[in-house]
C-alpha cells in the first residue's frame, strides 16, 4: 500500500467505518442510560430542579470547596490545561474547521496555526506529566486500570501525530496525515466503549445531580 492509497483509505472507507461505530455506539450508550429511568420521587418537590440542573453543569467546572481545591490543585491545573488544549486543537485549527464545515454546513473563525501549534506542545507535555503522575502516585496507580492507560494513548496519539504531520517529522507528509487521521479513526471507534464517553455524558450527569438536589429540601 502506498502512502496515497493509505491516505485515500483513511479519508474514505476508514473514516466511514469509524464514524458509523462512533455514532452507533454513542446513540446506543446514551439511549441505554436514559431508558434505565429513575425511581419516582414521592416527596413534595422544593422546585422543579430544572434550573438547578443547568446551574450545576456550570458550577461543577469549578472546584467544590477551598480545601479540596488546595489538595487537588495538580489535578485541577493539568486537567484544565489539557482539556482546553484539546478543545483548541480540535476546534480552532483551520483544516479541522473545514472538516466540520463539510458535514455541518457552517464553520467558525480559526486561530493562527502558530498558536494552535504552541497549545499542542503544551497539551502534549501536560499529558505526559499526567501519565507520569498516574504511574508515580501510589494511590492513583492502585486505582488505575488498563482502560485508563488505553484512554490516555487514544487521546495522546492524535495530538502527537497531528503535531508530527504539521512539522513533517520523520516521514513524508502524506504518510503522517494518513497516520494522524487513522489515530483519530481509532479514537472515534473506541470512544463510545471507554471512559471517553464522559465528554458527552458529563453534561447529563451534572444536570441530574443539580436537578435532584434542586428538588430536595423545604420550600421557603
Amino acid at each position: 500500500m502506498t502512502s496515497v492509497e493509505f491516505l485515500q483509505w483513511v479519508r474514505g472507507p476508514g473514516l466511514a467505518i469509524a464514524s458509523i461505530i462512533f455514532v452507533f455506539g454513542m446513540t446506543l450508550k446514551v439511549l441505554e442510560i436514559f431508558m434505565l429511568g429513575r425511581k419516582k420521587n414521592l416527596a413534595e418537590l422544593r422546585s422543579s430542579g430544572v434550573k438547578e440542573g443547568f446551574r450545576t453543569i456550570i458550577t461543577r467546572f469549578g472546584a467544590v470547596d477551598r480545601f479540596t481545591t488546595r489538595r487537588t490543585m495538580f489535578t485541577h491545573i493539568t486537567g484544565w490545561v489539557f482539556h482546553v488544549g484539546l478543545f483548541v486543537a480540535i476546534f480552532l485549527l483551520t483544516p479541522h474547521i473545514e472538516l466540520f464545515k463539510s458535514f455541518l454546513g457552517f464553520g467558525w473563525p480559526a486561530l493562527p496555526t502558530a498558536i494552535v501549534d504552541f497549545v499542542t506542545v503544551i497539551t502534549l507535555i501536560t499529558l505526559l506529566i499526567i501519565l507520569f503522575h498516574r504511574i508515580t502516585n501510589p494511590v492513583l496507580r492502585y486505582l488505575s486500570v488498563g482502560e485508563d492507560y488505553v484512554v490516555w494513548v487514544l487521546t495522546f496519539l492524535p495530538m502527537l501525530t497531528g503535531y508530527m504531520a504539521y512539522h513533517h517529522l520523520f516521514f513524508p507528509y502524506t504518510w503522517l496525515l494518513g497516520i494522524h487521521i487513522l489515530s483519530v479513526c481509532i479514537l472515534m471507534a473506541l470512544f463510545p466503549f471507554t471512559k471517553l464517553t464522559h465528554a458527552v455524558t458529563l453534561f447529563f450527569s451534572r444536570w441530574y445531580n443539580g436537578y435532584m438536589g434542586g428538588q430536595k429540601g423545604v420550600k421557603q
Binding site: 479519508r11 474514505g12 472507507p13 466511514a16 446513540t27
Partner: peptide, 21 residues
C-alpha cells in the same frame, strides 16, 4: 479541502444513528 472526508459523512453518520437508535 484536503482535510475533508472523501465520503458523505452525514449519510454514514445517519446510518450509524439509525442503527444505534
Amino acid at each position: 479541502s484536503l482535510s475533508t472526508p472523501t465520503i458523505d459523512i452525514a449519510k454514514t453518520a445517519a446510518a450509524g444513528l439509525a442503527a444505534g437508535a
